[in-house]
């Protein structure tokens, strides 16, 4: 039920209520109104036809980086 899949915004429709998003070659129309600052190129999480959040690239990078560090130190 609380499924949400990441997709990239490829086009924002006039008025900004709807946008086209893409994930792995699949395109959908979703409502964008809940993430008013989203822009083309952003990755959003889509739930029940609405983009509910813009994914934060820095945070993602940071958590992966931190974690990889931990694993490296551990393995070595």
């Amino acid at each position: 039920m609380c499924l949400a899949a990441p997709s990239q915004i490829t086009h924002i429709e006039e008025g900004g209520f709807m946008a086209e998003v893409e994930s792995f070659g699949n395109k959908r129309r979703v409502a964008l109104i809940m993430v008013p600052t989203a822009k083309v190129g952003d990755y959003v999480l889509v739930h029940a036809g609405y983009a509910i959040q813009i994914l934060d690239e820095e945070e993602a990078k940071e958590s992966l980086r931190l974690w990889e560090e931990i694993l490296c130190s551990q393995n070595s």
């Binding site: 899949a5 994930s23 792995f24 070659g25 699949n26 959908r28 889509v46």
Partner: peptide, 8 residues
């Protein structure tokens, strides 16, 4: 594409 569509 199939994995992606299945996911959402």
């Amino acid at each position: 594409e199939a994995a992606g569509a299945s996911e959402f």
